[in-house]
Amino acid sequence: MATPRPQIPVTVLTGYLGAGKTTLLNRILSEHHGKKYAVVINEFGELGVDNDLVVDADEEVFEMNNGCICCTVRGDLIRIIGALVKRKGDLDGIIIETTGLADPAPVAQTFFMDEDVKARTRLDASVTVADARNLPARLADSREAEEQIAFADVILLNKTDLVSPDELVAVERRIRVLNPHAQLHRTERAALPVDQVLGQGGFDLARILEVEPDFLSGEDDHEHDSAVTSVSFEADSPLDMGRFNAWIGDLLAKQGQDLLRTKGILNFAGEDRRFAFQAVHMLADGDFIGPWRAGEQRMSKLVFIGRNLSRPVLRRGFEGCLANGA
């Protein structure tokens, strides 16, 4: 019996126009890391991977001389991913570079919707490159820029050499209002080691908690006027799986368009395993990820990032899922 091939980690690379995401991609592809990545780019005009790299417009997939693969997206993302995973030879990862005006959520949804893609790949993280100098203005006039920050697992605050120390602190504070949980790096010319960009496990909650056990702890008490907010809850009493599924299913059906990200670790009554839950808008996924460790407090933690979030309403819904509730 053949051994199943491991799932290929996928990184979604986004950032508003001019933020520096192509510069970051150039660095990843030119480093001597010894790994083989596929790169999916959804605008042919952004294919400046290297000054001496010439792309044949008729080619959808081609091998570069550094061992990476590059694809131009001129069709269905699912079709391209499906073709990539069927190629001979193992890939160490797939990087999807979106356009500067893209909302990353629809890209992420691909890995929830298609069963074949879901079986062969796993969404590792959403990485956003932000322009330290221009981000405040973009957040004021662009919904996409706001969503790119709010959705991110990793944020590169780039071009930090172009702002004053006070401006840098202010823009970081603005980012943390939108997204209090993402890893945040200050960079110039997108200079960051590859191992701090790829393989971050942003959608792999088990891995996040191994590295940062308090990642989902506490509630976000920020008060601000931004349309995007973060609300989180925790409970030390077990949840009833049936109640939770009914509640979260109804919530996502009614408010899914406003819910950019939902994720958590759940303690279900009668189960000795932790359950990792995650959703992108209305599409949800989840699975048991292993037993609770000896002596570990069995705590359910759930985070919502989105618009029009009512803390009291969400709290009542979450508490209504407690196994010892009414």
Rank of each mutant, 00 (worst) to 15 (best):
R174Q: 12
A191R: 13
T128A: 15
E212P: 03
G218D: 07
V117A: 08
G199C: 12
H181Y: 13
D195W: 09
G75T: 08
I96M: 02
S164Y: 09
V117P: 00
A150H: 04
V197R: 00
E210V: 14
I94F: 05
R74Q: 11
D153I: 01
I94P: 00
L84T: 03
D124C: 11
G82A: 04
K118F: 12
R120H: 14
M113V: 14
V107S: 00
L135G: 03
E167S: 10
E210I: 14
D161E: 15
D166L: 10
T98S: 11
A206S: 14
E212F: 15
A119I: 09
S142N: 08
A119V: 09
R186F: 12
Q183K: 14
D90P: 03
T110C: 07
G89Y: 10
V154I: 14
A119F: 05
Q183D: 11
I78F: 02
L84F: 05
T160Y: 02
I81R: 00
E167K: 09
T160V: 15
L135W: 01
D116V: 15
Q183H: 13
F112G: 02
D166S: 11
Q196H: 15
R79A: 12
A83T: 13
I208S: 03
P106N: 10
E115A: 13
P193V: 05
T121G: 04
E167W: 04
A137L: 15
V154E: 00
D114Y: 02
D204V: 10
I149S: 00
D214T: 12
A150V: 06
D76C: 09
I208D: 00
A137C: 10
K159W: 04
L156N: 02
F203W: 15
E188S: 13
L205C: 03
L209K: 07
